[in-house]
Design a protein around this nucleic acid. Structure first.
Ligand SMILES: [Mn+2]
Ligand SMILES: [Mn+2]
Ligand SMILES: [Zn+2]
Ligand SMILES: [Zn+2]
Lengths: 135, 135
DNA sequence: TCATTTATGCAACAATGTTGCGTTTTTGTT
DNA sequence: AACAAAAACGCAACATTGTTGCATAAATGA
């Protein structure tokens, strides 16, 4: 699984990358850099940042930012690649204000946004509230 | 105008706050901290950060974050207050990938998002593409 | 004008992320 | 299996962004 994923994105399969990707595959929701660090036995901070950057650039993971200095990372759907991340028109992000988890959620119908005289390439939707577990 | 705005949010009208608020009132779009700094003759960095924080907390301005370490600030609509920022269900944010400006745009109809078994309190919508000026 | 409350300015610190560079590892090819 | 080229790693140093504590100054209401 891990090997196959890295290979499909044409990324070299180093021990560290496999370990980091393993962390993502083990997490149901989006995670922060600190979360990743906590799940690694030992690591080099710089290498981790470069790993994350290359994962993002190659369509393996995507970044989620929300007001209040919240920055998280989550696995991409298969269709993402180095040329485009296709979350737009696919899924939205939801932050639960009780458990503070951030979910990637697939919407049954993704709203269409038209802005007069603007050309809209992509849309990101972020919600806050209470998740199904905390409710 | 500036005085009235500060007073309406019950903020003390210091010279520095008036100057910073003036910067926002002179800008059509969202601006970064660096943008603000560039428009001030002289300033103390710490005071600026505290000024921004108090403006946000009191519903004068709001923060806009987008993937790629983009963080900007923009004036709030009048209705915002310390208790709630009401942009959700009011306007969206759009980043033009040509001019890199970030616009606050009022949508004619703001989409309603329902997530089964989740309680949705607020929604933020962010678009990217090309603005009316660059088109 | 005065007392109280709040804001300012400086120093020090903290968190997060980047760049340069020599060494090591991966990979595709002999 | 051995080799050469390309890419990734790990360390040091640095950069950017934001915060906290505290003494001083300014704003406000009385
Ligand atoms: Mn997602
Ligand atoms: Mn806005
Ligand atoms: Zn929750
Ligand atoms: Zn534009």
């Amino acid at each position: 699984m891990i090997e196959k994923l890295l290979k499909s994105k044409k990324l070299r399969r180093t021990p560290f990358r496999k370990e980091v990707l393993g962390v993502f595959l083990n997490e149901p929701n989006a995670i922060s850099v600190t979360d990743i660090e906590a799940r690694l036995k030992q690591f080099d901070r710089i290498t981790l940042y470069r790993t994350i950057k290359s994962f993002i650039e190659n369509g393996l993971i995507h970044e989620i930012v929300m007001p209040g200095d919240i920055k998280k990372l989550a696995l991409c759907p298969d269709e993402c690649s180095s040329v485009n991340h296709v979350h737009t028109t696919q899924h939205m992000h939801f932050r639960c204000r009780m458990c503070e988890n951030i979910f990637c959620l697939n919407l049954h119908e993704f709203p269409e946004i038209n802005i007069p005289r603007f050309k809209v390439d992509s849309i990101e939707i972020q919600g806050t509230g209470i998740c199904n577990i905390c409710l």
